[in-house]
Design a protein around this nucleic acid. Structure first.
Length: 941
RNA sequence: GCCCGAGUGGCGGAAUGGCAGACGCGGAGGACUCAAAAUCCUUUGUUCGAGAGGACGUGUGGGUUCGAGUCCCACCUCGGGCACCA
């Protein structure tokens, strides 16, 4: 025991040596400002550094600086982007790579509520701790560019962008946002009409303000919002889970009408869908965004009734002749006017029951349909038929118009509903024979024999009226829709339209730890503050909590912490018409605000006059041609942001583009979703998680002490008690080993289990690599004589393969190629002198610290971070002779060695001459011989 | 229910339609050691065989092909997303 240390050679690559090397080089990089990426202009300008180098903008989704610090599951993506950035830097690119902190949000606020400590203090210390942990990994960030969303120097520009959005409107004719001043000018000149057609000058000031405010991209609206009494704040649709609870805290959420800030993201719905085609993202993410936006093409149709026109949205206007009843959502405003005396009791009872139901139960697809007849009828505009109007909770007030026309023969839900309440189901299309066969019934237009509704292209029947709409015989749904839409428009009872699931973005929160709105109110409404008054600094207080309520108290009202600060909310200022009193907006922005544009601030983090210098922005974000529409070149992050962050950030970016502040239409050109690190978690018989490190395996069973436990795999973290700290890994192996391990366990986009016992493999690799170059007794460089031709060819094949793998972010296979090369060198006894340089340069992006140390031992006095990455010599990629497998009837039988440039005939002859092949043929004559040059020979008998 | 992914040794995973299992872990054997750890070397898909060598083998069943883990069809399982969206 006492002598254990002395057995190890003094200069073996051990964890102590690794730590010494790593800390030294981290200090050196910092002292020498090694990773600073120059800008073409502004404070970070270095025209020489920019000249002649292509730019590359690599971005990680920035983290929330939590108090618990990092575990080894967090930095998977960060290591990946660092490897890529280091590789690209060596390949000659000017790489912008840094890290910021998304530091507004609930945890810091909740911690403040509990402890009374100001969230700014907790945030600062969490950020400092996270910076330290990330630095220890050796990430090659440009520290000058780092930002923190809670810094007034940053959120000043978040507020400025809010004002840009507030001070703009969406011009649907131009298809883009424009400054609000241009709308006002158009209203004044009369080229834009007022909503009710009165001339602009005849409107009162209040009316004029209201007209303009209603058109703004950011607007205050009395609208149905998600009120969460348990959190004491409203939340966005995107933050409500499928079962109607809050994303954070899991409290019930209620739909309530409240005055809140909204962002007109729906104006961009089409562009947000269409521009996905420009992007290098996975189809999975694009599909999620498309589904969320939920575009559907159809028509609005108006049915006359005693209570006025009932407007419905339908994607199948062509089936209007099959509409035999209508269904309204129970909350629909026309229900009261439609309900007859006879039905009043039943309708009221149904409405009450529907209101009491939770969103979850209402949206349960499996359950049987329910509904009540209102007693009234409406007129089907295409055939004048009077059809009953029902209410049912399968129709949702929040989608379309909250009312549908029911076509039971062509819609499964309507089919079920009609069956249940004995409503007629006339056929209006003649389904093909195959459809009847598939469902095992005889072809018939008697729908009582049909097991379900028919949806698809098929000839129309009974779909012609006396008024010029004739679909009978037509068998194209698209054509049927087109003709119907034309007819509806011509007869003034409807028109083709597009409907979206996407709602406007609820943008205000009744909390403390967020960006204050740069807005004050006078008696007429909100007024955007002038740019000079930014930042509107979050006021100091010691009372951080919003008023919260019983989570089920639906009728409580929000009260934000800022509401209580009269000294702050009541202001006197001169906004151009003399000193007057105003009241500040007491909401704060949602946490998404700061992450909607942070990549732009990385580019020009210290600019006091602009959120980003246009020249700098164009350099890093501008369109590059070749189908690259501009934007971040590589954005890496978790799939959990597929909808929320990515949709909001794209929206802000498009507004900034429309207003001429940025040069690319999209912020993130290439998106890469890294996988998660999973870890085994163990539950005892009481279903309580136990500390994973304390679990032992015996005979394939797992035990915690003497108690048997069950294993499951989950996201690494505190709640599953399975987190592994990077500090443990640094102590046991060093950061280079940890980096290699995380990168080697699989492709970047795959989730993979963490196995602490596997980490040693990469440690051994580094140890062997080190030993191939360094004398373990003296620490001196130790290289062998020049490489033999076979070794040299292997080196160049490795260079070629590693470059391709790095470019394709296949870091795991790049590592195996390097291990193979190193294993070959191990057999040689030492690394040949002429292999040392390319070897060290190739490992540099992966394990930069040990690479720097070896580079120094090779006699260099400076860092290798900008040394050119090795380039393969094409001549060495081709061998004189090659080995080819020979198959007989597709089964591998033997190998032959032939000249690389041998003709097919020569290869065939060599294959047939091989004794093992002869055995397999066993005297029979080949019918055919297939030679795939350079690949294989297959002999068919 | 619908839409995406993915199923390969004991484990993580590799394989432009062309030698399945690279690389790593783990296992086995050996070297060093009084011994152990660390390190190094050999070996390691299953199976038959003393061996040479053979058979089988990428979730299941079909198909295309000289040749299929890879392409096509159907099914099963797991993971993710959406879910009465008219």
């Amino acid at each position: 025991m006492a002598n254990a240390e002395s057995d190890i050679p003094p200069f073996r690559y051990s964890s102590t040596l690794a730590q010494d090397i790593e800390l030294r080089w981290q200090d050196w990089w910092e002292a020498n400002r090694a990773f600073e990426a120059p800008n073409p202009a502004g404070p970070l300008a270095d025209p020489e550094g920019v000249a002649g180098r292509e730019k590359l903008f690599v971005l990680d989704m920035f983290p929330y600086p939590s108090g618990t610090g990092l575990h080894v599951g967090h930095p998977l993506g960060f290591i990946g982007t660092d490897v890529y950035s280091r590789y690209k830097r060596m390949a000659g690119y000017n790489v912008c790579y840094t890290m910021g902190f998304d530091a507004f949000g609930l945890p810091a606020e909740q911690y403040a509520v509990q402890t009374g400590q100001h969230p700014a203090i907790t945030t600062a210390s969490n950020v400092a701790n996270m910076r330290r942990q990330l630095r220890r990994l050796g990430l090659s960030h440009d520290p000058r560019r780092s930002i923190d969303t809670t810094d007034p120097g940053y959120y000043r520009w978040t507020q400025w962008i809010f004002l840009q959005i507030f001070n703009s409107w969406y011009d649907t004719d131009a298809g883009r946002a424009r400054p609000i001043g241009e709308l006002i000018a158009a209203l004044e000149s009369g080229s834009q009409a007022t909503p009710d057609g009165r001339p602009w000058p005849s409107l009162s000031v209040a009316e004029q303000r209201a007209v303009v405010d209603d058109r703004r991209m950011a607007y205050v609206s009395e609208a149905p919002v998600n009120w969460c009494p348990g959190l004491g704040t409203v939340v966005a649709n995107e933050e409500v889970t499928a079962d109607g609870r809050s994303d954070r805290g899991n409290f019930p959420v209620f739909k309530r009408n409240m005055r809140q800030w909204m962002m007109r993201i729906t104006a961009y719905a089409d562009r947000l869908i269409d521009d996905l085609d420009l992007l290098d993202w996975t189809d999975a993410i694009k599909t999620m965004q498309r589904n969320w936006i939920g575009r559907s093409d159809g028509a609005r149709v108006r049915f006359a009734s005693v209570a006025g026109d009932i407007e419905v949205f339908t994607t199948r206007p062509d089936t209007l002749f099959g509409a035999t009843f209508m269904v309204l959502a129970p909350e629909h405003p026309l229900v009261a006017g439609l309900t007859t005396q006879n039905q009043a009791a039943a309708v009221t009872e149904y409405q009450r029951a529907a209101a009491a139901k939770k969103e979850v139960d209402r949206q349960d697809v499996g359950k049987a349909k329910t509904g009540v007849f209102t007693g009234s009828y409406a007129i089907n505009p295409v055939n004048g038929v009077s059809i009953p109007v029902w209410i049912a909770d399968y129709v949702l007030m929040g989608y379309g118009t909250g009312a549908i026309m029911a076509v039971p023969c062509g819609d499964q839900r309507d089919f079920e509903f009609a069956g249940l309440f004995d409503l007629p189901i006339p056929a209006i299309q003649e389904p093909p024979a195959a459809w009847f066969a598939e469902h095992g019934i005889d072809p018939s237009l008697d729908t009582s024999t049909w097991p379900l509704a028919f949806v698809g292209d098929a000839p129309y029947v009974h779909s012609t009226n006396a008024d010029g709409l004739a679909l009978d015989g037509l068998s194209s749904v698209a054509e049927g829709k087109r003709l119907t839409n034309e007819w509806l428009a011509a007869h003034g009872c409807g028109e083709g339209t597009v409907n979206f699931k996407l709602r406007d973005w609820l943008f205000s929160r009744q909390r403390y730890w967020g960006e204050p709105f740069p807005i004050v109110y006078d008696e007429l409404g909100p007024i955007g503050l002038p740019d000079e008054s930014l930042p509107v600094v979050l006021p100091e207080t010691d009372s951080f909590a919003p008023r919260t309520f019983d989570p089920n108290d639906e009728f409580s009202n929000p009260e934000s912490p800022l509401d209580r600060l009269d000294w702050w909310t009541e202001v006197e200022m001169d906004l151009g018409d003399g000193l007057r009193s105003y009241r500040r907006d007491t909401n704060v922005m949602p946490q998404w605000a700061g992450s909607c544009w942070y990549e732009l601030r990385y580019l020009d983090p210290t600019n006091e006059n602009q959120f980003v210098d246009p020249q700098v922005e164009r350099y890093w974000m501008g369109p590059k041609g070749n189908g690259h529409p501009g934007g971040v070149d590589l954005y890496v992050g978790g799939v959990e942001h597929a909808v929320l962050h990515l949709l909001y950030a794209r929206f802000w970016h498009k507004v900034l583009f429309d207003l001429g502040h940025v040069s690319s239409v999209e912020p993130y050109y290439r998106l890469f979703n890294q996988g998660m690190i999973l870890a085994a978690a163990f539950k005892d018989p009481r279903e309580i998680y136990v500390e994973a490190t304390e679990v032992v395996e015996r005979d394939g069973q797992f035990f915690h002490g003497d108690e048997p436990v069950t294993r499951e795999w989950g996201k690494m973290g505190k709640s599953l008690k399975n987190a592994v700290s990077p500090d443990e890994m640094y102590d046991a192996y060093g950061a280079d080993t940890l980096r290699l391990y995380e990168m080697s366990t699989g492709p970047m986009d795959a989730s993979r289990p963490w196995e602490t016992r596997d980490v040693v493999g990469m440690y051994r690799f580094l140890q062997r690599l080190w030993r191939n170059l360094v004398d373990e007794e003296t620490g001196a460089l130790r290289v062998g004589p020049a490489a033999d031709p076979a070794t040299m060819r292997l080196v160049h094949r490795t260079i070629d393969g590693v470059r391709a793998d790095m470019d394709g972010l296949r870091i795991n296979t790049a590592i195996s190629k390097l291990i193979e090369l190193n294993n070959h060198l191990t057999k040689l006894g030492a690394c040949p002198a002429d292999v040392a340089v390319p070897l060290v340069l190739m490992i540099a992006p992966l394990c930069p610290h040990v690479a720097e140390e070896l580079w120094a031992k090779l006699g260099h006095t400076s860092s290798l971070i900008r040394e050119p990455f090795p380039v393969a010599d094409p001549a060495l990629l081709i061998a004189d002779t090659i080995e080819m497998p020979v198959q007989v009837n597709g089964k591998f039988r033997s190998r032959i060695v032939v000249a690389a440039d041998a003709s097919d005939a020569d290869v065939e002859a060599a294959a047939l001459a091989d004794p093992k092949v002869g055995n397999s043929l066993n005297g029979s004559t080949p019918k055919k011989v297939i030679v795939v040059p350079g690949r294989t020979v297959n002999i068919v008998v």
